[in-house]
Each structure stands twice: as structure tokens, then as C-alpha cells.
Design a protein around this nucleic acid. Structure first.
Lengths: 107, 107
DNA sequence: CATGTATGTACGCATAGATGTATATAACAT
DNA sequence: ATGTTATATACATCTATGCGTACATACATG
């Protein structure tokens, strides 16, 4: 089973996803904007589609691809415990700086 | 250059990071908790260390590894534009449900 | 129907990286 | 000093996967 992380490890796939944040695009448009050979784009799109990152609709010979939220939300969930961890660290740093600004340089 | 995504693509490395959210640990502890051979743990720790995910201090023959915030924060930043994207979608869904609850099933 | 455009897929290759085994380094204990 | 514990590293191997090339499919238009 391909994890969210496996999918995102590929730079071109991340580039595709980032482009799709602004608007949906055809395969040809992605091909041009990313300067990639068409089969490469199609193969990455297949991976992204099967993992639920994107969905497509048919427009004559074209397929229009757009973003789906789910898998990235999954990543967000995975990140949650770490966010708690590092926000604790930010707090510690901020407290330190606050105290420093109040005139206690030797904490 | 190893990206954050390359590092996180490996399941054992993610497991290590998750363990370290609660407290710092020695290599031997990780070895036991993850049921992995020691060289495997050491090699993953090296990758994580060189990418800034963890840092270690020496305690006699042991090395104690603990989490660092930076790289995961980087991931959080990468995720930001997508969060905007999908929160828009959540809003759309919520509006729909709100209207439905107010007695307009045919939206 | 023939040709062109848009996209998907099959196959072979090359490379990266994860693992196991063995060994090296370093700190302790007796 | 010698052995023991804890961790790091070197080397060979195996597998997964990204890519290029070629081809297939599908729709459109003259």
C-alpha cells in the first residue's frame, strides 16, 4: 500500500499538486508548464489519481485534473502530534525572548 | 539534496520520529521498541540526523536522540497552500449542510 | 474514413536506497 | 589488560521505481 509519503517523495508529483492548487488543468497544460514529456506526466497523474490526490473529468480528448483534499488532510493529521511538540518549543523560546526584552539577559 | 519528503518516505524513520515525540531515547531503546536490528536503526538515525530531524547527545556508551522541530515545520509550511484549498471545500460542504438543516433539502 | 490531436500504457533499463552480515570504534567493568 | 556493552560503518545484494521509447486508444475534423 502506497503511503501519502511515498507519493509525495517524487518532486514532479509535488509540482503537479502545487499547480493544481490554483486551478484544474489538462495533461497537456501540465506537460508544458512543467516541461516534462507527456508519458511522464500521465504516469505521475495515474499514481496521484489512484492515491486519491487528484480526480479527472473528460473534456473531449482531454482529461481535466483537479485536486482532492483527503490525502493531504491525512498528512495534516499525521503532523498534528509534532505540531504540539514544536509549539511547546516555540513557547519556550518566546518566553525566553520576552524575559530578555524585559531586561533579564541572564536567563 | 534530500528533501523532507524523501526522509519521511521510509516507514521506520516515521516510526522513530513518532516515538521521539514523547521523550528522547537511546539507540538500544528504539531497537527494542521497533523490533529492528541495530544497524538498521543506526543508519536511519544517521539519515534523520543529517537532515536535522533529530539531534543526539552522548551518555557514556549511549547516544540519546531527541526530536528537532525545524524540518517538520518546513513540511507544515509546504502544506499551507493546500490547507487553504481544502478549507474552502469544507466551507462549501458546511454551507450546504447548514442550508439542509434549515429545511432546504434541494440545494 | 483518414488524419491529427490528446492521453494512456507496456517494456526495458538504470539508479537509488533499504537491508543483512561483518567489522570497527568507544566507553565501561573487573 | 581483557572482555563486554553500545553504537557506528563498510560492503554486497536485492528491489522498487522513475524514465525513455514505442505503441495503443479515443475523440475530432476535413
Amino acid at each position: 500500500m502506497e503511503t501519502v509519503f511515498d507519493i509525495l517523495a517524487e518532486p514532479h508529483r509535488r509540482a503537479i499538486l502545487q499547480l493544481l492548487t490554483t486551478s484544474e488543468r489538462s495533461v497537456g497544460q501540465l506537460e508544458q508548464e512543467l516541461q516534462l514529456p507527456q508519458p511522464t506526466v500521465s504516469k505521475h497523474l495515474r499514481v496521484l489519481r489512484e492515491a486519491g490526490f487528484v480526480e479527472s473529468t473528460v473534456d473531449a480528448q482531454r482529461r481535466l485534473y483537479r485536486l482532492r483534499a483527503e490525502p493531504l488532510r491525512e498528512l495534516d493529521v499525521w503532523l498534528a502530534p509534532f505540531r504540539e511538540f514544536w509549539s511547546a518549543h516555540v513557547d519556550a523560546l518566546e518566553q525566553h525572548l520576552d524575559r530578555w526584552e524585559e531586561g533579564e539577559p541572564h536567563v
